[in-house]
């Protein structure tokens, strides 16, 4: 399990890193929890690895103007335990606690997870439900991509060559909101066979806002917009959950067929809605 030889650079500044990434066969190293296993299997063999781990300030968490800003290099552990994230984006903190195991959470990063875009990754469901904005920069560009436009296919995102995820911006969840993340963890890998993240706001007993993000079921995470609309029109949660995944492609493998995955997405949407409703005031 020895990776192919490569050159290693550890830039001290973002400018230096972006300059390196502007050309050549170079790959970013963040927490290494996906890249290093791939390099060991020689599924990835970059000529040069650019380690972002030496650049100060890429892992900060701040709250300003109704948004929580989380730096791409914030580890899953930091997101899970950050008082600011727990108070203002509890859905994200809860989702982080479901990722892998403690050793993986100590190293793996938010930016690395979403850039890698494993179809079975946990974060994408929460980022969709939270309507996150992802700030993406390169040596000569700086743009913001909505989570709904970011995850394009399995291991494929809206990132262009030379671009890196710099930070994720999340609107602060209202304290009256209810939220929940329900996951079927693969028994061997721990990844999400299916994971459903939900946010709900209720007024006078009626749901006035519903957001549902689904990961694991298809080649990329998606918003269950038809179910959201039904909920906002007053449909019962069971009825809304029953349309989750309709018209979406579903993955099939030895562990779970496409039909079973779709079924799991609906069951777990119902459960996540029940949890969210019990938390909504």
């Amino acid at each position: 399990m020895i990776p192919q030889a490569f050159d290693y650079s550890a830039p001290q500044s973002l400018e230096e890193a972006l300059g390196l990434l502007a050309s050549g066969d170079r790959k970013i190293l963040a927490g290494g929890m996906s890249l290093i296993p791939m390099m060991k299997l020689r599924l990835a063999a970059p000529a040069e690895v650019v380690d972002l781990g030496r650049i100060a300030g890429l892992d900060g968490i701040t709250e300003a103007g109704g948004f929580v800003h989380i730096g791409a290099m914030a580890t899953h552990h930091t997101v899970e335990t950050s008082p600011a994230v727990r108070a203002s984006c509890p859905l994200l903190a809860e989702t982080a606690s479901h990722i892998g195991d403690v050793q993986v959470r100590n190293m793996g990063t938010l930016g690395g997870s979403i850039a890698h875009a494993d179809p079975a990754a946990d974060y994408p469901a929460a980022l969709l439900a939270l309507e996150a904005e992802i700030r993406v920069v390169s040596a000569h560009s700086d743009r913001t991509v909505n989570a709904a436009d970011f995850f394009l296919d399995a291991f494929t995102t809206a990132l262009e060559p030379g671009e890196i995820v710099l930070e994720v911006r999340l609107p602060v969840e209202q304290s009256s909101e209810g939220y929940g993340y329900e996951k079927v963890a693969h028994p061997a890998s721990g990844f999400a066979v299916v994971g459903v993240a939900v946010r709900i706001t209720r007024e006078h007993g009626r749901i006035i806002m519903a957001r549902i993000g689904v990961t694991g079921m298809g080649p990329h995470a998606f918003r269950a917009r038809a179910a959201e609309r039904l909920l906002e029109e007053g449909a019962a949660p069971e009825r809304a959950a029953a349309v989750v995944g309709e018209g979406e492609e579903a993955n099939s493998d030895l562990y779970a067929s496409a039909d079973y995955r779709r079924h799991l997405a609906r069951i777990h949407a119902r459960r996540a809605l029940a949890v969210a409703l019990s938390r909504a005031s």
């Binding site: 399990m1 290693y8 050793q103």
Partner: peptide, 11 residues
């Protein structure tokens, strides 16, 4: 705690 098989010594 980290898994030292999933980290390069240079890190």
């Amino acid at each position: 705690a980290v898994k030292s098989c999933t980290m390069f010594a240079v890190q």
